[in-house]
Design a protein around this nucleic acid. Structure first.
Lengths: 349, 349
DNA sequence: AGTTAGCACTCGAACTTGGTGAGTGCTAAT
DNA sequence: ATTAGCACTCACCAAGTTCGAGTGCTAACT
């Protein structure tokens, strides 16, 4: 059976209507709302064909049709037209990334929030994990009479502060030189490179302040562990409650539970690496408990190596074209920011 | 009508049962489950009295009784017995605050999470805002060949990092002395004290790196604004979905919306200042949209001045005694931490 | 041959009806 | 003062009913 022009128009109409109303779409509705110049009876015949082809289906006999996962797939691959971002959306996305680019984790957090606000779906964002595994800078600062501040920066400007308590702090100069020395020893180190040799060199640099060794080691470990771990920021989970798909509280709860398991998300994000934009529709998604959802992920890169992923989760009946355009816009903005950061890194070596 | 011993026993039984089952409690249930040595008929008579006194009510005629807000109030004020924290709970609370005390905002975030985990209700925590309005330390560090790191610490060890981009960074020593000088100028300043005079002193200290002035001023402003703003961390909102009270998705949504408006929470927290522990039951709560909830707040202090607040939101049918004991435990732990921090501050002056 | 009007049919949703059980209030006996 | 007994109420459930949106099929029309 050929998928002629008219069938496509009808499929298009069904998908549009269903995305909008979440109700099965009947032939009469299409005849009235979309002026295709044919009667409902003809539409019925065509719909029967479309169903045979597996593109639409009936939730129950004698109800209207809804798109099948396959139908959405066809729509996404061939029918859907790319939406342009409105100037306001464009502007908004830009304002988000430019607000505070100094620390990657804030940037990601804000990006997730912005996306869920713009799309009304749930968003998750995985932080870039690249050059993070090595110490880039480590310094000591005075904080007050009984505490020092240890600042550790790893690649990608992932920065952590740690307060270290001590009975009395060294002089400003001493702190400075101790910081410099520590930095000389530790710069470029990854966590498992800090062995006995490194530690005894640290001890040598700490001089009479050996008490600092333990807290510093602990702080380094905490920072590196946090840096290594793929961070997933999620936002807008509660948006899902607004969709009739999740009117049943049980469904909502089980989806939330699935989303809560960050491991699942991480796997999903990992799988999507390599593709620019990946769209998983309903059952295409391997994660049980998200069969009623579609997930659109985009990876942002810097140079060649992929860095992180943004994903948007919504009901299969989601507004694919809007999501894709917003996602593309966001990726571009983030890549710009990352490029700026990396320029700094490169010149450093 | 006198509230004799037996009536109290019956009220107690109703409340206990209702907290457990969320179902209206009938006279026969009480007669069977709680061996009060009287028949269901007698209990009915007593219940009729209790209802007249406004302590319990019937959701509909010929159903069992549920406690009224007034009934809960009586229970909380006079009947409820303080629960002891189990050693495990005690230990858990301690482990949370000791995990990472270096930065107040992490501590608060973790506290909120821990409380919602322990109680299965929703928790919100407001950060202490006290000596935050003044700069405690401000320093510069090298980050890479095109960026500096500006570290700003205000009171309470509220610490923010800012990456500043520049064409080429000064030498390590120069950065150090510039940081020291800046610190000399800015230490102890609040945001509105940074006037023309201060700025020209900063300019003098920056020497040939005037380009740094603008980013530094911007970073200071962002940090101080963030420090001044009362931060509210919330956790465990999704716990509410598990309660039959919120089986209706509309109710859940409207509660979530209310909780989302942080202003509302802040006001509520402000109101509760002064009291050690404040319990608002159902309609006692002035916030519309939380009439079906009880809110228990505790303030943590340091010395005399109140610092911040922890609140737990649950259905009116919440386990008051458990929540109160957990809350008390948490407050003590947080106060310990804050005391340690402040010791450092004092010696500094 | 393709299109359309018409009609019988289907099935979920919304409403009605009747039975059941948990619960009450009241009264009379203990 | 307490309790057994009884009539009564009302939410809840299951079965039956109606209604309407929708389909598939057929016959007539272009």
């Amino acid at each position: 059976m050929a998928l002629n022009d008219r069938k496509i128009q009808i499929l298009q109409a069904i998908i549009n209507d269903y995305i909008e109303t979440a109700e099965p779409v009947g032939s009469r509705t299409i005849a009235k709302k979309y002026n295709l110049g044919i009667s409902s009876a003809t539409i019925r015949n065509e719909m029967s064909d479309l169903e045979e082809m597996g593109l639409i289906l009936q939730p129950h006999a004698s109800s209207g049709r809804i798109p099948s996962d396959m139908g959405y797939r066809l729509y996404v691959d061939h029918l859907m037209q790319q939406k342009e971002l409105s100037p306001e959306e464009q502007k908004y996305l830009q304002s988000v990334v430019s607000r505070d680019i100094s620390q990657i984790d804030y940037l990601m957090e804000e990006s997730a929030k912005a996306l869920s606000l713009l799309t009304n779906y749930t968003t998750f964002v995985s932080e870039p994990v690249g050059q993070r595994t090595r110490i880039k800078q480590i310094r000591l600062l005075p904080l007050d009479s009984t505490s020092l501040l240890l600042v550790i920066a790893t690649g990608d400007n992932f920065i952590k502060n740690h307060v270290i308590k001590m009975d009395s702090v060294p002089s400003e100069e001493k702190i400075f030189y101790m910081g410099i020395s520590l930095n000389r020893v530790l710069q470029g180190c990854s966590l498992n490179e800090i062995d006995g040799a490194v530690i005894s060199r640290m001890q040598a640099e700490l001089m009479e302040y050996q008490e600092l060794l333990q807290p510093i080691l602990k702080a380094i470990e905490m920072t590196m562990r946090a840096a290594e771990k793929i961070q997933v920021h999620m936002s807008g989970t509660k948006n899902m409650l607004a969709f009739p798909e999740f009117a049943d509280i049980q469904k909502a709860k089980s989806l939330f539970q699935t989303l809560e398991e960050k491991d699942v998300l991480v796997t999903m994000l990992e799988e999507s690496k390599g593709n620019d934009i990946q769209i998983l529709i309903g059952s295409e998604n391997s994660v049980q408990g998200m069969k009623d959802c579609s997930v659109i992920t985009a990876t942002y890169k810097m140079g060649d190596n992929t860095r992180g992923t943004i994903g948007i989760v919504g009901p299969t009946r989601m507004d694919y074209s809007q999501v894709i355009s917003v996602l593309n816009g966001m990726v571009q903005n983030i890549e710009n920011v990352l490029r700026n950061l990396s320029d700094g890194n490169k010149k450093n070596t």
